Measured scan of single mutants.
Amino acid sequence: MSIQHFRVALIPFFAAFCLPVFAHPETLVKVKDAEDQLGARVGYIELDLNSGKILESFRPEERFPMMSTFKVLLCGAVLSRVDAGQEQLGRRIHYSQNDLVEYSPVTEKHLTDGMTVRELCSAAITMSDNTAANLLLTTIGGPKELTAFLHNMGDHVTRLDRWEPELNEAIPNDERDTTMPAAMATTLRKLLTGELLTLASRQQLIDWMEADKVAGPLLRSALPAGWFIADKSGAGERGSRGIIAALGPDGKPSRIVVIYTTGSQATMDERNRQIAEIGASLIKHW
């Protein structure tokens, strides 16, 4: 067993022997301040990774656009098919120029040779490549099948209805392509620590998230040296922004954090800054 596999296998073990965790309302004060600064709703939840206990939450059962955070769930569904012998990570998928959609920095470079399922998941999570996500959605049967996968996990809230990039439209009061912070946090925890996926697939999923290259201005910008984070960000229309993450000190994750916002007129930089400040408060009061 590799060191990384050992780390993920012992996530519940280490967490069980940690000192009790206590909620700190100071972080919620910052979440509410972010709402004021952005002029928009902000949803927040913080779960203990081992027990699933909610440590703090704000608007945990209000719907927010998922945006690209759905790509972690998508690759979880792909990995479940791999575990069941219905898919192979090494299978190569070929596609054409007509398949390319807006923001496809990886797939646009491989029109000639195609990409493997493993490479597509890596591109979808680490670079948020939209064509990679659409190609992977095709392998599982489309958005409705991802929703069905989530329902089978016990998540009857999260739903995907459309493809990239239309799913980022974020129309107010439109339930399409949305989740709730509580539902997303619980589902992410199941994917990373539950028995739904094999140990190898859980490790692969967290490795992809740990290698995320496009979430630097968010929670990662607030992390002290030595902290662990595996995350996936999302951005959408109407001032929408979000991030889902597993993080913790001492090089291992111990909490799940989900943050979503929508309806702001603020710039992307300002949305990023507010999420980073929430992260800084979380870490300060850990």
Rank of each mutant, 00 (worst) to 15 (best):
G263A: 08
S96L: 11
P224Y: 04
Q204N: 14
T126N: 06
E145L: 09
F58G: 04
I125S: 03
A133C: 05
S2I: 15
A148K: 14
H151K: 14
R59A: 06
A280W: 11
I243M: 06
A215T: 06
T158H: 01
N50C: 08
V214I: 07
P217C: 07
Q97M: 15
E195Y: 07
T178H: 02
D174N: 06
M127A: 08
L136D: 00
C121L: 05
I3K: 14
V72P: 10
A148E: 15
Q4K: 12
P172M: 12
L79P: 00
T147K: 08
L100F: 09
R41P: 10
L89I: 07
A266M: 13
T261N: 03
K232A: 01
V29Y: 04
D36T: 15
V82S: 08
R189W: 13
G90S: 12
V72T: 09
E87L: 11
L111T: 12
Q86Y: 12
L219M: 09
I140L: 10
L247P: 00
K144N: 14
G279V: 05
A211D: 15
L223Q: 05
D36C: 15
A280F: 10
T198Q: 11
T112R: 14
D161E: 08
A266Y: 08
G239V: 01
M67G: 13
A182C: 13
F6W: 08
P20H: 10
I256E: 01
A124R: 00
I93G: 02
A23V: 04
M66F: 09
F149S: 07
A280S: 15
L111R: 08
E175I: 14
R162P: 01
V8D: 09
D83T: 05
D36K: 15
Q37C: 11
V42P: 00
D177K: 01
L150C: 11
T179W: 00
E26A: 14
Q265A: 15
A182W: 13
I256V: 14
S68G: 00
V42E: 00
P25E: 12
R176L: 08
L146F: 12
A185S: 08
T131G: 14
M268T: 08
W286G: 02
G242T: 02
R63K: 09
L135E: 06
Y44L: 11
E62K: 06
R91E: 06
T198F: 07
R255S: 03
L196F: 12
G236R: 01
I140P: 00
